[in-house]
Design a protein around this nucleic acid. Structure first.
Length: 776
DNA sequence: CAGTGAGCGAGCTTCCGCTTGACTT
């Protein structure tokens, strides 16, 4: 038994550190937080000065028991959790749960996993910083109060199972507001003029320094240029340089992996986790752009070896984010001399390469660039045509890495080569285009650009960006969608050989790929929260409470005092809002039907719907769910009435009615108490009796083919051999068993089936239920 | 797993931040 027990948060980290420390140390991990507030109930006693009811998390009981045993046997316990608010709290929880004493406990911290850093940390132990722990308690309890007091209001006022929180509600707000900006955006068109010139055998283009509002003005301008001459009015050369970006943080990794590899933020984190566990990269949840000196030296050595001395230029980057806690290094390869991971998995290879390039480039020389601007004049006009060109004099870091542009919507301005010219040189004209362009609304967020936005607001942490994005989608506030654009016509005027011609072309506009759109529910919840809880939804709310957490961490404010000051007015608003009777349904009156009854669109307990007739009237109103491709905001009276054409009776089959409707899982036919899904190509509003019968018969045929054989047992439940979506399988007692490839499903005997079941059970794999309920 | 939607009411839902796990006819 080792004399020393050192505890870190991550198991992969524990393995690495154990190698550095030698046999006197056992290194174990807590696997994150070990205690938390209970999932059910508030878990905070408001009356007893916000006393939290901490409990060992159910999935950490085993970890805590093992650590406790090891701690008891050790002479000294070293708490080496991260040096940030959460890490300090984990150390404190460990201290409490493991029953440690000041005499046999030491708190150590480091910001990088290198041998020297760990050894230095061991030489400089300190005590647990209770002020920092208190700041974490304030953070934790504030989030609980906000989340668990706001969410139930939404259940009551809007619909069950919704949620609200300091982070997720602002994320939804960002998406809703962007959508409104796009809707409100007035697209206007203008004419952009581009001349195609040549000089000394080099063709180049130059853009006019003026845009025209109308086609008429553009036409007049081109007319003026008929038969005139162009000359070089001015030429300028300016040296400039480009500096590499900092190595990746979690947020920038997610953004670049999204742009360059089309990864979702979740996918990026999963792949990065694998690389981390393989030991290929450093920790992937970080807000720091720092590299250890060891890493910088290693990068320099690699750059000099591969690209030559003049390509190396080491630098230390500084974080721009005020909320950064910098407990780790930036994300980098653990070994710079390894250019590719040994993993066979394609996505792991691609992400590793991206991380390697970005980290290496960050320690490479600036790129030296010469910018050239040629101004082309014409005596017939005061306006000039401007040609810009760039020549890379020294590529520097660009040899390895080029950051992707942020505005994917922008047109690619490929700058060609410019000719060598002198002032007053005449230049030849090929033609001039005046092209109709349109102003662009702001672009919708991708998952990754939303992360960037949240990070900029100081909201969320590297470990929560991906979960937050998935929460707002799971709650149905936001959907990630790819939408096809629409065609748009635009005009092009061309001046060539002293003649002006006009053509109309078409382009696709408004196409979106994997972008975030707010749903009706998201919009209604957002508007409700903003009108009632403006403070929480304020973009500066997190920044403001973070300032207070910092004061607590400095020991200048008691965490209970901070919570009290926040909670009193907050809870009063909660009470006041709860007392209001009306639901917040986003109700909108669309008009009246032929009987003069009011027709509404609103959100009900099961989502957006249309309603005919008033709720207060004697007669029960009629309801219909709106279709997936419809939006409350753009719903018309005609569309609403159309929805009431369902359910429709389309005929009779085997003396029973055939009814067609749309349910939770799409359009279906109901016949004799059974449901038959209507295939995509059939329209529930027009489908006829004969077609409905075909659909029913097809399903019956499949049902018949589903059963390969049934083997009766008594008293145990029978064994069924069935044809499933993925081929034949055996099932009994709600469990599913795979059939070995060498067996023929139709000829399986009862004995063989039992053998397969026995073998499967013995393999020790845990079975998943057919429709798994939520985890316990 | 598919007819819901007001209201009555039981009992359910929910936060953010730290970590990895287990595995699919």
């Amino acid at each position: 038994m080792a004399k020393n027990l050192l505890i870190v948060e991550s198991p992969a980290k524990a393995k690495t550190i154990e190698k550095y420390l030698g046999k006197d140390f056992t290194v174990k991990s807590s696997i994150g937080h070990i205690v938390d507030l209970p999932e059910k109930g508030l878990g905070v006693d408001i009356k007893d000065n916000f006393k939290p009811d901490y409990q060992v998390s159910s999935d950490k009981k085993k970890v805590v028991a093992e650590l406790k045993k090891l701690a008891k046997a050790a002479e000294m316990v070293w708490l080496a959790t991260d040096e940030d608010r959460e890490g300090e709290a984990i150390a404190w929880h460990l201290y409490n749960e493991l029953g440690l004493t000041p005499k046999k406990t030491k708190r150590v911290v480091y910001h990088e996993i290198t041998k020297s850093a760990i050894e230095a940390a061991i030489k400089n132990p300190r005590e647990i910083n209770k002020d920092l722990v208190d700041a974490q308690q304030a953070r934790r309890i504030l989030d609980r109060l906000v989340g668990y007091e706001l969410s139930p209001i939404l259940w009551k006022k809007i619909k069950p199972s919704l949620s609200a929180g300091r982070v997720q509600s602002v994320a939804v707000r960002v998406i809703v507001e962007r959508e409104r900006e796009i809707t409100a955006f007035g697209v206007t068109s203008f004419f952009k003029v581009v001349g195609y010139f040549s000089s000394n055998g080099v063709s180049f283009k130059a853009e006019l320094d003026k845009k025209f509002n109308t086609e008429k003005e553009a036409n007049e301008f081109l007319n003026k240029l008929k038969g005139t001459e162009f000359f070089v009015k001015n030429q300028e050369k300016k040296p400039s340089k480009r500096t590499p970006s900092a190595p990746f943080t979690t947020s920038t990794l997610q953004q670049e992996a999204s742009r360059k590899l089309s990864f979702s933020v979740l996918q990026t984190m999963r792949v990065a986790q694998t690389l981390y566990e393989r030991g290929d990269i450093t920790y992937m949840r970080t807000d720091s752009v720092n590299l250890s000196q060891l890493a910088i030296d290693a990068a320099k050595e690699e750059i000099e070896k591969v690209y030559g001395d003049k390509y190396a230029q080491t630098r230390q980057f500084k974080t721009k984010s005020a909320s950064a806690q910098e407990a780790h290094e930036a994300i980098r390869p653990t070994n710079f001399s390894i250019k590719a991971t040994t993993s066979e998995e394609y996505n792991e290879q691609r992400l590793y390469e991206l991380i390697w390039k970005r980290a290496i480039a960050s320690q490479m020389a600036d790129a030296e660039i010469e910018k050239t601007v040629i101004t082309i004049g014409n005596k017939a006009t005061e306006n000039n045509f401007i040609a810009t060109g760039e020549v890379i004099k020294f590529d520097g870091f660009l040899k390895v890495y080029m950051e992707s542009s942020e505005d994917e919507g922008e047109e690619e301005e490929t700058e060609g080569q410019l000719p060598m010219v002198n002032t007053n040189d005449k230049v030849g004209l090929s033609h001039i285009d005046a092209v109709q362009r349109f102003t662009q609304p702001p672009s919708r967020y991708t998952e990754a650009s939303l992360v960037k936005k949240l990070e900029g607001l100081g909201i969320g942490r590297p470990s929560t960006y991906a979960p937050t994005i998935s929460t707002v989608q799971k709650r149905g506030y936001v959907v990630k969608e790819t939408r096809e654009g629409t065609e748009r016509k635009y005009n092009v005027l061309t001046l060539k050989d002293n003649e002006i011609t006009s053509v109309t072309k078409t382009e696709i506009t408004g196409a979106e790929k994997s972008k975030l759109f707010p749903t009706d529910v998201g919009i209604v919840v957002n508007d409700f929260l903003i009108s009632n809880f403006a403070e929480i939804l304020d973009y500066n709310f997190t920044a403001h409470v973070e300032e207070e957490f910092d004061i607590i961490a400095d020991g200048k404010l008691a965490w209970q005092k901070m919570l009290k000051d926040f909670y009193k007015p907050f809870h009063a608003t909660v009470e006041k809002t709860t007392a209001v009777k009306e639901r917040a349904s986003g109700e909108r009156l669309l008009g009246q039907d032929t009987n003069g009854k009011n027709v509404f669109v609103k959100i009900g307990r099961y989502g957006p719907m249309v309603q005919i007739g008033d709720t207060e009237s004697e007669e029960k109103p009629r309801f219909a769910k709106i279709r997936a491709d419809q939006r409350m905001e753009s719903m018309t009276l005609e569309q609403a009435l159309e929805l009431f054409r369902l359910p429709r009776k389309v005929g009779v089959y085997e003396d029973k009615d055939l009814d067609v409707s749309i349910g939770r899982f799409g359009p279906y036919i109901r016949h004799d108490g059974k449901f038959y899904s209507l295939p995509k190509e059939d329209d529930p509003y027009t489908v006829k009796e004969d077609r409905a019968i075909i659909v029913i018969e097809e399903k019956r045929k499949k049902e018949r083919e589903k059963v390969i054989q049934i083997l009766k047992r008594d008293p145990e439940p029978e064994i069924q051999v069935l044809n499933g979506r993925y081929g034949p399988y055996i099932t009994t007692d709600k469990e599913i068993y795979k059939i070995p490839k060498d067996k023929e499903p139709a000829k399986l005997t009862l004995e063989e089936c039992l053998e397969i079941i026995k073998a499967d059970k013995a393999s020790g794999k845990k079975k998943r239920k057919f429709f798994p309920k939520k985890k316990a």
